[in-house]
């Protein structure tokens, strides 16, 4: 297992199970976790993060449903091969929704189109090294 770890914060507007889902999803998308790699068991992640095991089970359940993780009987959970569980139409619909939400929030915060574009580019650049690491690893 790589140095990658889930980290959670209490007192956040994002429930703990959602924090786990988002971090695993991002790690799998950027290559910090690679296909076939194991993730901690429900029990061990619960004990490591000091949280109710049902919370981890719920997060893993959602990640399996979305095709990010797969459960191998009695072996535990592993990062799944990247596959699209959604059609291209559905992916586009979800992308538009995500972009709309993001743009509305950014405009609500009084940013200009230029500033918003720069912020997006910066965020994409930050992810790039992970992408490169993935390519190198494959």
């Amino acid at each position: 297992m790589s140095g990658w770890r889930v980290q959670i914060a209490t007192g956040s507007g994002t429930p703990i199970y959602r924090q786990i889902v988002e971090q695993v999803r991002l790690a799998a998308a950027t290559g910090a976790l690679v296909a076939g790699q194991g993730v901690p068991s429900v029990r061990s992640l619960a004990e490591q993060l000091l949280i109710n095991a049902n919370t981890v089970a719920k997060a893993y359940g959602e990640l399996v449903r979305d095709g990010v993780l797969e459960s191998r009987q009695s072996l535990g959970y592993f990062v799944a091969e990247k596959r699209q569980v959604f059609s291209r139409g559905e992916r586009l619909r979800r992308l538009r929704q995500a972009v709309d939400d993001f743009v509305q929030e950014a405009i609500f915060l009084d940013f200009t189109a230029d500033e918003i574009q720069r912020a997006v580019e910066k965020s994409l650049t930050a992810l790039e090294w992970c992408e490169k690491a993935t390519e190198a690893g494959q």
Partner: peptide, 10 residues
């Protein structure tokens, strides 16, 4: 301790 509620309780 509401922090413990968030960690432990369902």
């Amino acid at each position: 301790l509401l922090d413990d509620v968030e960690r432990m309780a369902d």
